[in-house]
Write a protein that binds this DNA or RNA. Structure first.
Lengths: 208, 208
DNA sequence: CCAGAATGGATAGCGATGCTCTCTGTTGTG
DNA sequence: CACAACAGAGAGCATCGCTATCCATTCTGG
């Protein structure tokens, strides 16, 4: 398949495909002569994945690059999912030291109660969560942090559902890609459902 | 309170505060002379809110402006929450017409089964959800869309938890701000917990 | 009262992001 | 053989979210 067809097939403009090639998001095509290349179905698939991650998942191209690198590096599925999570979480905002301390303690306790993994500091996922909890406290939303246990229970069930998607998969590539998509799209899908449900609940509670 | 103090109190640089004033994100201070102004505690509070919405919630300044406008317009809490949801969802990516059709049908069915509100088309929340579902299908992740009912049940319970935060509040302003913060921060907090849970579950399922 | 700091307001600039356009020389195709 | 498509590189561009500079006015400490 040549450039024009790859572009048409994936719905990504030629100039943009070239840009992705330059940026290393898309592996170069197979050479047929010093300055000609052929692209395969895998390229179309990868372009679709990039589109899904950026447009639906809201990831930056830099984050997508990190995720794709993790995939191509053939890390274990578990490690690759870690990269995906960190990129989805993004850089954590800075909050006050007291806030961090308080939220970390709260979280440590929760993690311990639920038998989850003791997290190492510096993990973007944890840092984001800590920042969010600290901000909630700072804005006087104690209720949010008080209901944390119930949130955690529900989060566990959602996570099990996410991971159920990988159940039938056998090859490592399949497991990784399925897990990746389930995490990223699952996030958006759940967020959407949550809004719909909020709209429903809010009509009962707030409509006056 | 004067500019320097407002800046120090909120942790936002003077130049940035001026920028927010220009953009209408922050209401002008009370005039003491043709070119001097005083700021109140409400300004500090609003700056904190802007920081929470942008840094933790990940909203653009344009989205924050829309949310703040909804608050200042004294809409009903329910309507204001609608604005918040739409801004959190952001513009929906374009997907194929068949995808939209399929996902819309799937969603209509689900909404009907759960007795939720029949949504009007053009709603950013619904469009995003439809796009995410269609993308999942396009990438061959049928499992995600098959488990939708269970996701919906869990989403409902999370939504109830979100809205529980508003329970004790009486004044309209309090209800709106609480709901707003619960939605935006609740999103991030739940996402964080979900990642932690995924990490736990993924160790069991994927670690080999 | 006055020097010097702070303020409001306006304008311009800046760095990152994600493309998009143009150009050059090569290759492929009817 | 004419003409389109291609690879690769570079520059340009629109948006976002600030940040820096100016200037005229106002406040403040001595």
């Amino acid at each position: 398949m040549r450039m024009a067809e790859l572009s048409a097939e994936s719905g990504v403009p030629v100039a943009t495909v070239k840009y992705y090639l330059r940026e290393g998001l898309l592996p170069p095509g197979e050479r047929t002569s010093p300055n000609q290349a052929r692209y395969a179905a895998a390229h179309v698939q990868r372009l679709r994945l990039i589109k899904a991650l950026t447009e639906v998942g809201g990831l930056s191209l830099a984050s997508v690059a990190a995720v794709l690198r993790a995939i191509d590096d053939r890390e274990t599925p578990h490690r690759t999912m870690g990269v995906v999570q960190r990129e989805l979480a993004g850089p954590a905002p800075k909050v006050s030291d007291e806030g961090v301390e308080w939220a970390t303690a709260l979280l440590d306790d929760l993690v311990h109660r639920h038998g989850w993994k003791r997290h190492e500091p510096g993990n973007a996922v944890v840092d984001n969560l800590v920042a969010a909890l600290a901000t909630a406290k700072e804005l006087g939303q104690e209720t949010l942090t008080e209901g944390l246990d119930e949130y955690a229970r529900l989060a566990k069930r959602v996570a099990e559902l996410d991971l159920a998607a990988v159940a039938g998969r056998t090859s490592v590539e399949e497991i990784i890609e399925t897990g990746l998509v389930a995490t990223v799209l699952g996030d958006r899908i759940f967020a959407g459902l949550r809004y719909l449900a909020q709209e429903r609940v809010s009509r009962e509670v707030l409509e006056s």
